[in-house]
């Protein structure tokens, strides 16, 4: 085909047409406050003045009530697995080698989950209600990032029943 239609050149059948969107992501007041505390090794949330739910990371308002959240609440780095997924396919730009576990974790003292990694565990043993705790990087490596916590590892504590997940006080879970 190429010899018939053209000389000394291959027929063009495809082009590269990438689109790059460049953002300057600004954290905003509540997440900036959260990240400033994370830099000091402390997880914090914000409590809604109306429904008393504690949000982490805080966004500065309660999505359910539509009111600003200002009261800062210190949280534990112990948490409960609310849900999880085992990632088996490499993700472009992500240096973590599969298979690895990504989990929605509710820290003690909060009512909603954030996403983080789980490790020091057999992936097949990870389950909803499992108790875990953050494994932090050395303090000199802390920055404005949730990466200050390398991952969460299992705790030797009884599982939290599904109906109690997201309702554990900051003092912890006795079983």
């Amino acid at each position: 085909m190429s010899e018939q239609t053209t000389e000394n050149t291959d027929v063009i059948t495809g082009i590269e047409a990438p689109i790059y969107l460049k953002y300057n992501f600004t954290a905003g007041a509540a997440p900036a406050r959260f990240l400033t505390q994370v830099k000091e090794g402390v997880l914090t949330g914000q409590r809604c003045p109306q429904c008393a739910q504690v949000y982490v990371p805080p966004r500065g308002s309660c999505a359910a009530c539509g009111v600003p959240t200002e009261e800062e609440v210190v949280l534990s780095d112990k948490a409960t697995v609310q849900s999880f997924t085992i990632v088996s396919i490499p993700i472009p730009g992500n240096s973590i080698e599969p298979p690895f576990v990504v989990a929605n974790l509710v820290p003690d003292g909060a009512n909603i989950s954030f996403i983080h990694l789980m490790s020091e565990c057999d992936n097949a043993d990870v389950h909803i209600g499992q108790r875990v705790q953050g494994v932090w990087k050395p303090q000199e490596e802390w920055g404005y990032s949730m990466d200050n916590i390398r991952y969460f590892k299992p705790l030797d504590e009884p599982d939290v029943p599904v109906e109690k997940i997201g309702k554990i006080p900051v003092e912890g879970w006795e079983g």
Partner: peptide, 8 residues
Amino acid sequence: LHQAFELG
């Protein structure tokens, strides 16, 4: 706090 972010 702000950070550059590129989505390709």
